[in-house]
């Protein structure tokens, strides 16, 4: 039980840091502490939060998915590309989801059955998806626009209910569903067991390999949902996002909130705490009009701080070390 208690420790620390940051910004920055800005703040990190929700499941199971953003962009771009081709909206959306699940299953199979390290499988898969989908399914396009016929999809990104933008609702729903899965179902307990000690989990009869397939499929599917939200927000999918740091930002959020890279610890509360801190920092820095370099310094320091804290709270020892660990 000590492990569980320490993760709560980190989540609480991050939440506390967030509260301090909010307090400082509220005093120093005019217009930070307003309802409108709070909405903008949460809205701006909702895509990141959705990605982190999927990433959390994989990291809790002591995995890692470096192909999540490639999956996100490629599958949502393909769905958009299918829409003007006469395919009904629902069919195009379903096709994108099927592709995302397929990518997740391949990731999971390579990791679980071929026993390759997740780091390398997903890294390579990211390149493969980017190249294969772009040349094979998108006709070489880097930019795919939301077609006129699918303007209804823009509701997802541009409308709100009672002033709360829909992406925030989607994030909340995904987070609630993931929380339910992880804390109230036996599959959720299995995922924790898998991350805590895969060998023991297998010995106690947990089907660890099929479970791995499920974890990566869920992560890829959340990536797809995030991709649709992004596509609806800007009426386009820009594959250049794959070359950005977004995938690492999602991992940053997860680790920051106290989901240890050594697995088995943390929960969706950690994702919320991490997302809140990143959102607050980004929003505050934009309002302060800080330069790109300073923003990078702050982000880098926060990530280093989080990993230091993770290391201090969950030191790696011979018992939990594994080949291919990062």
């Amino acid at each position: 039980m000590t492990a569980r208690e320490t993760h709560i420790g980190q989540g609480v620390i991050v939440a506390a840091v967030t509260v301090v940051a909010v307090a400082v910004f509220s005093v120093l920055l005019d217009g930070f502490a307003t309802l409108a800005n709070a909405v903008v703040l949460v809205r701006s990190v909702s895509v990141l939060g959705i990605l982190a929700t999927g990433m959390a499941i994989v990291v809790i199971a002591r995995g890692l998915d470096l192909s999540q953003v490639a999956t996100m962009a490629a599958t949502s771009a393909w769905a958009l590309k299918l829409m003007p081709g006469g395919l009904p909206l629902w069919a195009a959306l379903l096709a994108g989801l099927v592709l995302a699940l397929l990518i997740g299953l391949i990731n999971g199979a390579l990791i679980a059955y071929v026993e390759m390290p997740a780091l390398f499988v997903t890294l390579a898969m990211g390149f493969l998806i980017f190249g294969a989908v772009r040349t094979g399914l998108l006709g070489g396009d880097m930019l795919v626009y939301l077609p006129e016929s699918a303007k209804s999809l823009q509701i997802l990104g541009q409308e709100g209910i009672f002033g709360i933008p829909i992406p925030v609702f989607v994030f909340a729903t995904m987070a609630a569903a993931a929380h339910f899965l992880l804390s109230a179902t036996s599959i959720g307990r299995f995922i924790y067991a898998h991350g805590d000690n895969a060998e023991t989990a297998r010995l106690t009869g947990i089907p660890v390999r099929p479970l791995t397939l499920l974890e990566y499929a869920l992560c890829a599917a959340t990536g797809y949902v995030a991709g649709l939200i992004m596509a609806a927000s800007s009426a386009s999918v820009d594959l250049r996002i794959i070359n950005s740091t977004l995938n690492f930002d999602a991992i940053l959020v997860v680790v920051l909130g106290g989901i240890s890279l050594s697995g088995g610890r943390g929960g969706i509360g950690s994702v919320l705490a991490g997302t809140a801190l990143i959102g607050t920092l980004l929003n505050g820095m934009v309002i302060m009009n800080l330069s790109a370099e300073v923003q990078n310094i702050v982000k880098g320091l926060v990530l280093l701080g989080a990993i230091l804290l993770d290391n201090a709270l969950h030191p790696t020892d011979e018992e939990v070390m594994r080949q291919g660990d990062i």
Binding site: D30, V40, S244
Partner: peptide
């Protein structure tokens, strides 16, 4: 905005609330 429409949207949304 690093040539990214989403980043431009987020920045502009923040600026417009201020």
């Amino acid at each position: 905005g690093y040539w990214d429409a989403n980043k431009a949207r987020e920045i502009t949304a923040s600026v417009l609330t201020q």
